[in-house]
Write a protein that binds this DNA or RNA. Structure first.
Length: 288
DNA sequence: ACTCTTGTTAAAAC
DNA sequence: GGTTTTAACAAGAG
């Protein structure tokens, strides 16, 4: 489940690996992934990746000397970017315990392959086909950006906007934190984690959350996501970085997937319920 | 064979 | 218009 930290992990790696590279060929293995766009291959071939931006969980690729379109990439639930440089394995850098990506790619789940002029390759894999890499006009990009709320990791995060937003919402705090138009980047894992750190029960109605609690939620949402970015994100089921490696925030999870194990703060067994239509983990004692 | 998994959107209800 | 709920999407694990 890629959330902001996982997407940022991928973006930071791609910045180092593919920015400045020119696309020599594009192979589309599944049309849905590119939004059935018949101009996709033609428009991307020959372009040079200029920058990769991110808003919430959405990546935005821009291209040198091209202002009329960008490529939006969303991993949704099982999307993965893999970068392969054949010359790496030839020179014997084999430090990874996982089988060389170059030997298993493209795979059954490869949906788009980008080959660069230097011989390196970027694969977009997506088992469940919810993710996409699609071209969008600058107007569409602006519209997409505008649809996102502020990010908890933003240096200019505005607490009063956040607390005011909670006040007028009458749903479970968890549902509100999952709403990307209100606050961007959190998903099922980091919502549960942030609420545990803040000591707030996921089922509490947003408009009944106190100002002090709201401040803690915002603070810890930012903290867990910043921490996770530093350690390469969380791998719970499918997430892998561009080298096929797992994220390490899994080692720091307090409640997600921890049902039945003692709460790290008060030793009460963590329980799992359904909230906001999602599997939800919390401590029934120290989350009020 | 059946249930469970989740990010986002469209649509309908309020 | 803003908010809320639900279904739909899709494919695999167990």
């Amino acid at each position: 489940m890629p959330e902001l930290p996982e997407v940022e992990t991928v973006r930071l790696q791609l910045l180092r690996k593919v920015v400045g590279k020119t696309i020599a060929a594009v192979n589309v293995h599944h049309e849905k992934t590119i939004n059935h766009d018949s101009s996709f291959v033609e428009r991307l071939t020959g372009t040079t990746i200029d920058h990769i931006d991110r808003v919430g969980k959405l990546m935005i690729f821009s291209f040198r000397d091209i202002s009329d379109f960008s490529m939006l990439a969303h991993l949704k639930m099982t999307g993965q970017f893999f970068f392969v440089d054949e010359s790496d394995s030839v020179s014997g850098g084999g430090h990874s315990l996982t089988p060389a990506l170059s030997r298993i790619l493209p795979s059954k789940h490869t949906r788009v392959t980008f080959t660069f002029t230097d011989g390196t390759t970027l694969y977009f894999n997506d088992m469940r086909l919810f993710g996409y890499t699609k071209l969008a006009s600058s107007a569409e990009v602006e519209k997409a950006k505008a649809s996102y709320g502020q990010e908890p990791i933003a240096s200019d995060f505005d607490l009063s906007t956040f607390t005011a937003g909670l006040k007028r919402r009458k749903r479970a705090i968890k549902a509100v934190l999952l709403d990307q138009t209100f606050i961007a980047g959190l998903g099922n894992i980091y919502v549960d984690e942030a609420l545990w750190h803040a000591g707030v029960r996921p089922t509490r109605l947003a408009n009944r959350v106190t100002k002090a609690e709201a401040e803690r939620i915002a603070h810890f949402a930012g903290e867990v996501m910043r921490h996770s970015i530093k350690v390469g994100g969380t791998t719970f089921q499918h997430f892998a970085d561009t080298g096929g490696d797992a994220g390490n925030y899994t080692d720091y999870l307090k409640v997600f997937g921890k049902q039945g194990t003692p709460c790290p703060r008060c030793s009460t067994p963590i329980i799992k319920i359904r909230c906001a239509g999602r599997g939800t983990h919390y401590c029934p004692t120290c989350q009020k």
